[in-house]
Computed example of a mutant assay.
Amino acid sequence: MIYSRILTILVLIIVLHQANAQCGQNASKVGATCYCISGFYGPNDSNCQQCSNNTFSLQGVSNTGPSVTQFSACSYCQAGYYVTTPGTTTALPGCLQCPSGATTPNPLSQPGSISSCVCFDSNGAALSSLSQSCQCNIGFYGSPQTTQSDPNRCLPCPANYTSPIGTTNSTGCKKQLDSSILTAFLQLIITSILF
């Protein structure tokens, strides 16, 4: 009887120890299961390898397991990169870095363009095939912030002033034409032409 109790206690200690066992390097627990952490992949939590070529994986069954390959797991581009070509079962996705001062809000898996990147400066103009660097938006001037921790450096033009995209100093802010004056002027021209 005593041996039975001791054996039960020993089994319980072993089970509890295994349940609290540490995950392998570059792995962590989700619930009670160890998985490779995001950005890594492997057949189990003891053999996690980092995704290559600026690709990224999401933690869970998609990046840890016996049938997981780099191609199946690392199907995202890491934050700060956008997807030029999607991944396949035999090729990683093509990942191109966002311009200086810009990033992608999350890892991406769908093909896109530079417009997937967002300038750190909230007063920056949207990126596009025509505008591939972070610049201050219409009505603002300055140099956009270059890191996420910097404050916004695109400052608004004074009231009733505006500026084109990319204006770097306050002298580029020009007084807006009052729409009521423009309307009156156009009415005067139309009236003089008609009569």
Rank of each mutant, 00 (worst) to 15 (best):
C119R: 04
C74P: 00
D150F: 06
G65Q: 04
G31P: 02
V61W: 10
S57T: 01
N44H: 13
L12D: 03
N20S: 07
G172M: 11
K175H: 08
T147F: 06
S109L: 03
S62P: 04
V15I: 15
C117S: 11
G172F: 13
S4N: 12
L10D: 05
N160V: 05
G172L: 13
Q22Y: 14
I189K: 10
S116R: 09
N20P: 02
S179I: 09
L130H: 07
F195H: 04
G39W: 05
G24Y: 15
I189R: 06
S170Q: 12
L194E: 08
S38N: 07
L130R: 13
Y82V: 02
V30A: 04
M1D: 15
S72P: 02
Q148A: 13
A91L: 12
S113A: 08
S38T: 12
S133F: 14
I181M: 14
F71N: 03
T147C: 09
V11W: 15
K174R: 15
S133E: 14
V83T: 06
F120E: 02
C77D: 01
L194I: 11
F56R: 00
P105H: 07
C51S: 00
S109V: 02
R5W: 14
T104I: 05
D178C: 14
S100D: 12
I37S: 01
Q22H: 10
I9Y: 11
I165P: 08
G101Y: 02
I37F: 02
C154E: 07
S133C: 11
V11H: 13
F56S: 05
Q110I: 05
I14P: 05
V61G: 00
N106T: 07
Y141P: 01
Y82H: 05
Q25A: 14
Q148L: 15
C34A: 08
A21G: 10
F195L: 03
P144I: 13
L127P: 04
S113Q: 12
S128Q: 10
I14D: 12
N20R: 01
